[in-house]
């Protein structure tokens, strides 16, 4: 098991969901996914966590750490690139620290073509920097 690289700061409000934890830091929504086999229900839980955090009508910059994921179902990947998610996510950065998470994230990007900008990063800092660079176009 590869350790998660994203950890919430002490002062952050952390939403625990069935798919992992979600919190807001530096204007970016962070999610640490700690489910080995990611299914649709987990992705829905994470989306609901984002809504709880920033509301229904805000498109967020999203930084996702897939550290704990070992596989992802088609349904889960399809939902992650759906119009429903488009309403919540302005842009998404993945932190991928292992070959497995890189393959999973790549499949998501190349097969399901999410309707918002997505990039893969080896660590959280360049990911945050890229998301901050998009800030003028995003609202949170």
């Amino acid at each position: 098991m590869v350790a998660e690289v994203l950890t919430p700061p002490d002062e952050a409000e952390v939403i625990e969901t069935c798919g992992g934890r979600v919190w807001l830091a530096n204007g970016i929504v962070h999610e640490a996914v700690d489910i080995a086999h990611l299914e649709l229900k987990h992705v829905r839980c994470l989306a609901q966590g984002i809504r709880t955090l920033v509301g229904d009508d805000t498109q967020s910059l999203l930084l996702a750490d897939l550290g704990g994921v070992r596989s992802a179902s088609s349904d889960a990947r399809a939902y992650s690139s759906s119009a429903e998610l488009r309403a919540l996510v302005a842009a998404q950065a993945f932190v991928v620290t292992s070959p497995v998470t890189r393959v999973i994230a790549s499949f998501f990007v190349r097969v399901f073509h999410p309707p918002f900008p997505v990039r893969l990063f080896a660590g959280p800092d360049p990911a945050s920097a890229w998301l901050h660079g998009l800030r003028p176009a995003a609202s949170a």
Binding site: M1, S71, P99, V103, I104
Partner: peptide
């Protein structure tokens, strides 16, 4: 479970 390239190919 070793999360290496072979695991990535299997996934």
């Amino acid at each position: 479970g070793s999360d290496d390239e072979l695991d990535a190919i299997v996934v």
